[in-house]
Computed example of a mutant assay.
Amino acid sequence: MSRKVIRKAVRAPEGAFDYQRKVPPLPRIGPFQERLNTLLEENELRGRRERLRMTRIHDLLVREGFEGSYDAVRRYAARWKLERRKDAGEGVTAFMPLMCRPGEAYQFDWTHEDVEIAGAPMRVKVAHMRLCASRAVYVRAYPRESQEMLFDEHARGFAFFGGVPGRGI
């Protein structure tokens, strides 16, 4: 809001001032709004690597006579993208929780960790096994990353959990 509007609101008796802008003015973009919409739509259809940056879109509009700022184009593009997401997302659930029955699935992964063993620095491979339903964890460190590590972790993990889940992730 402008200072003028705020001054009116401060000076008005309590509850007497009501200001709501119906449509935000686009004094510079107005005449180029259709062209900008076209450029943004074409840009959305391009592959990720071929997409134009907003600075390039602004340059194209300037060549066609646009006198507005880059920030005006950037703000308009952000609102345009937000509106398209709202339109596309109606009736779509954004979150679907992962729910597994006990014994249905487990997750397996491994990482590299730097540790000190007997005063000497060493990099070990740490295997992680987690049940999806209960989130129970079994972790074991190995000196090397090998097939034996994979087989041993699975055998010991299944023994630790007391059975073999239906599928691995």
Results as ranks from 00 to 15, higher is better:
Leu36Trp: 02
Leu52His: 05
Glu64Val: 04
Arg3Pro: 11
Lys81Leu: 04
Lys4Trp: 08
Met96Gly: 02
Arg101Gly: 01
Val92Trp: 14
Phe66Asn: 01
Lys125Phe: 09
Leu45Met: 05
Gly168Met: 13
Glu153Val: 15
Leu39Lys: 04
Asp109Phe: 05
Leu26Thr: 00
Phe158Glu: 12
Glu83Phe: 13
Gln20Glu: 13
Glu90Arg: 07
Val62Glu: 06
Val126Lys: 09
Asp114Val: 10
Ala120Thr: 12
Lys125Gly: 11
Met122Trp: 09
Ala133Asn: 11
Ala77Thr: 06
Phe32Val: 00
Ile169Glu: 06
Ile117Cys: 15
Arg56Asn: 01
Leu61Phe: 12
Val73Gly: 07
Phe17Asp: 03
Cys100Ala: 10
Leu131Met: 11
Val5Asn: 06
Met149Gly: 13
Cys100Asp: 08
Ala105Ser: 02
Glu83Val: 11
Phe95Val: 05
Tyr138Ile: 05
Arg35Gln: 02
Met129Asp: 10
Arg35Ala: 01
Val137Tyr: 05
Glu50Ser: 00
Pro97Asp: 08
Glu148Pro: 07
Glu116Met: 15
Phe66Gly: 00
Arg140Gly: 14
Ala72Glu: 09
Val5Glu: 03
Lys8His: 06
Met122Tyr: 13
Asp18Gln: 14
Asp18Leu: 15
Arg63Lys: 00
Gly15Asp: 13
Asn37Ala: 05
Ala12Ile: 10
Val92Ala: 10
Val126Met: 10
Ala133Lys: 08
Gly91Pro: 04
Glu34Ser: 02
Gln147Gly: 14
Ala72Val: 13
Gly68Arg: 03
Leu61His: 03
Ile117Thr: 11
Tyr138Leu: 13
Val139Phe: 06
Arg21Trp: 04
Arg53His: 04
Val92Pro: 06
Leu131Arg: 05
Arg11Cys: 07
Arg130Ser: 02
